[in-house]
Amino acid sequence: MDRREALRVLGAATAVPLVSRDLLALGRDAHARWRARPGFRVLDADQQALVTTLTDLIIPETDTPGARAARVDQFVDVMLADWYDPDDRQRFLDGLADVDARSTAATGKPFTDATPAQQTALLTTLDDELARLREAHQSTSKSFFRMLKWLTLVGYYTSQIGFEQELHERIIPGMFDPCRLQDAAARGGED
């Protein structure tokens, strides 16, 4: 955590008495969401919730934890704050708004309130649109969904959960085996 981030966190903490009454009114769920928010610098509470839902649909909890547990939402916020240029950041935020707009148009509800089936249907649409760009050999670099997928995979597989629990990687393997027979679990097939 750098100095700027630390100041943000401190700022959030001192703001608690002023805003907590409003937040409490939103109920326990929203409050839990808010409690997880210290340090967020770009995503507001609704956007954070949307990112958490979207990334967890891409990499869900299975026999191992998913994107939610790996706190991919925090990684996304750091990248939006300090990695991307303003154009790319805005494209991502616009993409989030578009997800909600499409969800509302289709179901009458914002994405996070839609049913799992409705969420999956919309994500399938976004994934299909990206696939069509690829198949037409058009640039995918401006695609919101590709950006989301990239952030999700990097955020998840470079987390401690992704690295240790999902991939069973070790920082110090201690040896090199150039042609090892894979066991079934490592192939990801039969576990």
Binding site: L57, T62, D128, G188
Partner: peptide, 22 residues
């Protein structure tokens, strides 16, 4: 490895299982 998933169709539990494999 998992990086191939960025430019591959899919999401969800099957996608995750597929990326765990090589």
């Amino acid at each position: 490895g998992w990086g191939r998933g960025v430019d591959q169709a899919g999401f969800g539990a099957d996608f995750k299982r597929q990326l765990k494999g090589l």
